[in-house]
Design a protein around this nucleic acid. Structure first.
Length: 287
DNA sequence: ACCCAGGGTGACG
DNA sequence: CGTCACCATGGG
C-alpha cells in the first residue's frame, strides 16, 4: 500500500482491504473502542487513533518512525490480502464469509497481552472480557496522558506477577485470577514466547499449554494473533457451530479440527477462521 | 431460576 | 487417552 505521512498522520487507501470495524470488532483484540467513527486503542505502549472515511485510512499520531517500528507490523501491512482472499475463495463457504468480512486483517499483537487476554476469554463473553482487561490496565498498567484524557497501557509481566489474587478478583477476573498471576510470573521469569514464533506449530502449541489457564483453544489464539502462526485455527463455540452446520451437517465434528482446517483451507486457515467467525457473529440471529 | 459466554483444570476410569 | 463436574461473573 502507498503510505503518506502528513502532520503526524499516516494515510493510505484501504483498497477494500482495511476495515477498522471488522479488524477491531472481530474478537481478536479487546482494547479498541469506537467513538464517533474513530477507533482508539493502545498497543505496544503507544496510543493510536484509527479513522476510516471515503476509502481512506488515517492513523494518528503516527509518524514514519512509529509506523515502521510498530504499526506496519501490527496491522500486518506487508501482507497481500487480495491474493490470500483469492486463494481462500476456493472454498465456497469461506468465499461467502469474505463477502461479509472483507477488510479484516490479522493483527500482530504483543504476545504477553494476547496471552493474558485470552486466558481471561475462557468461558466468558466479549463484553465482559473487555471490561476485565480495561480494569486490569487501569489498576496495573502505565498511565498515558494525552489530549486531556487518561489512557492505560497493558501491564508488564512483572506488574501482574506482583498482583495479589484478591486484587485480580476485585476487577472481575473470577477463577482465572491465579492463572493470570502464575502465567505472568512465568513471563517475568523469562518465558521465551517470541521464540515460539519460529517453532513448528505443534511444538509451539505444546509449550504454550504448559502455562496456567492456556489450553488448546487459547493457545491457538496466541499463535494466530501474536506469533504469526497463520495456520492456527482456534476452535471456539462459534466456529464449532459454523463448521457443524456448513461442513458436517448431520455428522460428528472431527476430533482434530486443526488437521481438517489445514487440509481444507491451507496455510492461511487462521484467516479463514476469522471470516467464518465474523460470518457466524453477523448472522447469529438467523437460522 | 436457568443458560450462556472466543475453555481449562483436575479427578476418575 | 476420553469424559465430566466445577470453576466466578454478569447479562439475557
Amino acid at each position: 500500500m502507498d503510505i503518506r505521512f502528513i502532520d503526524g498522520t499516516a494515510e493510505f487507501s484501504t483498497d477494500g482491504l482495511f476495515c477498522a470495524r471488522k479488524i477491531f470488532d472481530c474478537g481478536q483484540a479487546f482494547r479498541w473502542n469506537e467513538n464517533e467513527g474513530v477507533y482508539t486503542g493502545i498497543a505496544y505502549g503507544k496510543l493510536l487513533h484509527c479513522e476510516e472515511k471515503d476509502g481512506v485510512v488515517r492513523l494518528y499520531p503516527c509518524g514514519a518512525d512509529d509506523y515502521d517500528s510498530i504499526w506496519k507490523n501490527y496491522f500486518d501491512m506487508d501482507r497481500d490480502y487480495a491474493a490470500i482472499n483469492e486463494k481462500l475463495s476456493g472454498d465456497s463457504f469461506v468465499k461467502k464469509g469474505i463477502e461479509y468480512g472483507k477488510g479484516i486483517r490479522l493483527l500482530n499483537q504483543d504476545a504477553f497481552e494476547t496471552t493474558i487476554s485470552f486466558i481471561i476469554s475462557a468461558n466468558n463473553n466479549i463484553g465482559r472480557i473487555k471490561g476485565i482487561i480495561e480494569r486490569l490496565c487501569r489498576v496495573f498498567g502505565k498511565k498515558l496522558s494525552q489530549d486531556g484524557e487518561e489512557y492505560f497501557c497493558f501491564p508488564a509481566p512483572q506488574a501482574l506477577a506482583n498482583a495479589e489474587i484478591g486484587q485480580l478478583m476485585e476487577i472481575g477476573a473470577g477463577y482465572r485470577a491465579p492463572y493470570i498471576k502464575n502465567t505472568s510470573t512465568a513471563f517475568a521469569e523469562g518465558f521465551d514466547i517470541v521464540s515460539l514464533g519460529n517453532m513448528p506449530y505443534y511444538e509451539a502449541k505444546a509449550s504454550l499449554q504448559k502455562l496456567a489457564g492456556v489450553g488448546p483453544k487459547v493457545a491457538d489464539c496466541i499463535l494466530l494473533f501474536s506469533l504469526g502462526h497463520r495456520d492456527a485455527f482456534p476452535a471456539d463455540v462459534w466456529i464449532k457451530r459454523v463448521l457443524q452446520s456448513l461442513y458436517f451437517p448431520g455428522n460428528e465434528l472431527p476430533r482434530d479440527i486443526y488437521t481438517f482446517a489445514k487440509e481444507r483451507f491451507g496455510e492461511d486457515a487462521g484467516l479463514a477462521q476469522q471470516y467464518l467467525f465474523f460470518y457466524a457473529r453477523e448472522n447469529k440471529h438467523e437460522h
